[in-house]
Write a protein that binds this DNA or RNA. Sequence first.
DNA 1: TGCAGAATTGTTAACGATTCCAGTTTAGTT
DNA 2: AACTAAACTGGAATCGTTAACAATTCTGCA
Lengths: 331, 331
Amino acid sequence: MITIKDIARVAGVSHTTVSRALNGSPLIKKVTRDRIERIAAEMNYVPNYSAKSLVTKRSFTIGLFFSSIEQGTSSSFLVDAIKGISHALDENYNLTVHGIDSVHNYAAIQPQRFDGILVMSQSDEDNAFIYHVKTMGIPLVVLNRQLEDPGIMNVVANDREGVKEALDYAVSQGHRKFAIIEGKPGFKSSTERKQGFMDSLIAHRLSLSPDYFAAGDYSIESGYSAMTALLQLADPPTAVFCSNDDMAIGAMNACYASGAAVPQQVSLIGFDDIMFARYTNPALTTVRKPIADISELGTKMLIQLMQQPDLTPQQLFVKTSLVVRDTVAGL
Amino acid sequence: MITIKDIARVAGVSHTTVSRALNGSPLIKKVTRDRIERIAAEMNYVPNYSAKSLVTKRSFTIGLFFSSIEQGTSSSFLVDAIKGISHALDENYNLTVHGIDSVHNYAAIQPQRFDGILVMSQSDEDNAFIYHVKTMGIPLVVLNRQLEDPGIMNVVANDREGVKEALDYAVSQGHRKFAIIEGKPGFKSSTERKQGFMDSLIAHRLSLSPDYFAAGDYSIESGYSAMTALLQLADPPTAVFCSNDDMAIGAMNACYASGAAVPQQVSLIGFDDIMFARYTNPALTTVRKPIADISELGTKMLIQLMQQPDLTPQQLFVKTSLVVRDTVAGL
DNA sequence: TGCAGAATTGTTAACGATTCCAGTTTAGTT
DNA sequence: AACTAAACTGGAATCGTTAACAATTCTGCA
């Protein structure tokens, strides 16, 4: 294994000079630096990060923690998240991945082990973990789930605006009677999406009938039963916004079961753009939550936070995009 | 930050003794050890892994590399894989995750940085990377994709047996006319699954008509067109085995388009049990590839390999399981 | 030419752990 | 009680790097 001392010997300088040259210190003359860099490259030198860490007290690893490793719904998140993060992350940082629910020993989550932590959060059950990280003083960014606490850096999708845009589109297609299947009660995302739904309807001076607000909890099953109820209304809606894609899939199945044609009879709009949205039959029109972008921006914020820990936490919103497929009919 | 020297001071012993006590050295008297362990726990001591790494030359991190981070199909893999791995992995090991295609500098993949490497492989394009790891002498296990090279530890699903079992089931449901949509030519998995298909048919003395062998390449589109062709046959099959779920989804859409009812007119069997398999309409009967189990077993093998690097590489097969849903009709 | 001050480079000591080798204590035997 | 072997503990070096401080080499100008 090549060390800076080996390079120093070859270059005829001290190992300190080598260290400085390789770390871009301004103390080193350009010719010396160039020569040392060339020699290092020739010798295939790779720095020993353990030694580096030991003295600089930085670990060069950032941790990605995500909720519900035991549940299925988060699966496509993860790849997108990792993609976005590695985009923003320096190549000699390590990204370690953990399920929050498999962290048994909170004491092991320490500043000396993580230079920074990203939490891909999907549920308020993550809060205990989030606050532990915060109290340990580890630079932290929470992704994907909107937090109430303004003291934590938070990057999320602009759900409200995204839903409004989708509804605007449906209005432009001629729809006037809109229903919503709401998300899990108590979740910030549920109220945000509902608000976007109402924003659009109000902007277009459309009526908001109480009958058209159906309860849901983000599960396929709840989408199914909510849709079934909606279809039994005397005057059913022509378009239904489902607060996530899972419920949209449930709703679509309910339509099949009730013999209601999608989209001719009922138009459907989802939210998330999960992988499966493009495979449904017909393919689901939905609002794409840009997980990769959220992750990339979050990582950039984390890096800033690592450099200046006193940076004021912000809440950042990333724009969603409307994915028009085949479940909204023109009237 | 608490170090062993702090503990030594409190315990009135040398830091050497503390190190030994905490690492289970037999040289330390039981009473001394117990006392030191108690003090360490009281002081919330957490070892500094950088220091440990520096002297022991172990990094305490194992790397998970997976192919095609830029493609979608692998998404559900990743969560399952991480789940399985963390099951088998000691809590003070770090698991770092990387996309193979985002590794630009092979030189950074070094023994000093990884105690071991797992490759979740989906394509033979990974081979270059795999051989780099091998030549670097890093303990290595390749998961999910069957390798030709017997010199590399390899854990895969028993595709052949799994397909056979699924076909046996379809036969038991009364089917006699079976078609197959094959996987990507040249892939080991394609031939294995095809072989399982034929094994079952031969065992049941059913005929293998060349018309019933349709080419595919594991893509949704190829499933669609293969199925379309199959439906236009004068004597179409009653059951079609699709070599993966993606093609099964394409095939199902082709059935919709041609007005062939699934499963009444055509029964469909997939392979993989991807997340969406349960969401299709009707829900897809398929062969579950036990990614979590593969990953867990692979990790165990990797740990063994790390302890005794001269262990003879093996090829291990993990049993699949048949997931009966709604796409195979009883005749 | 000589010299101050700037620009470079080098010496040495950390960082927190393990480990070799030596030193001390304890126990067992005579 | 004396001696020896076994059991246990400690001192000091080491891993590869950075960084405080010291030392050296250049500059430019009187």
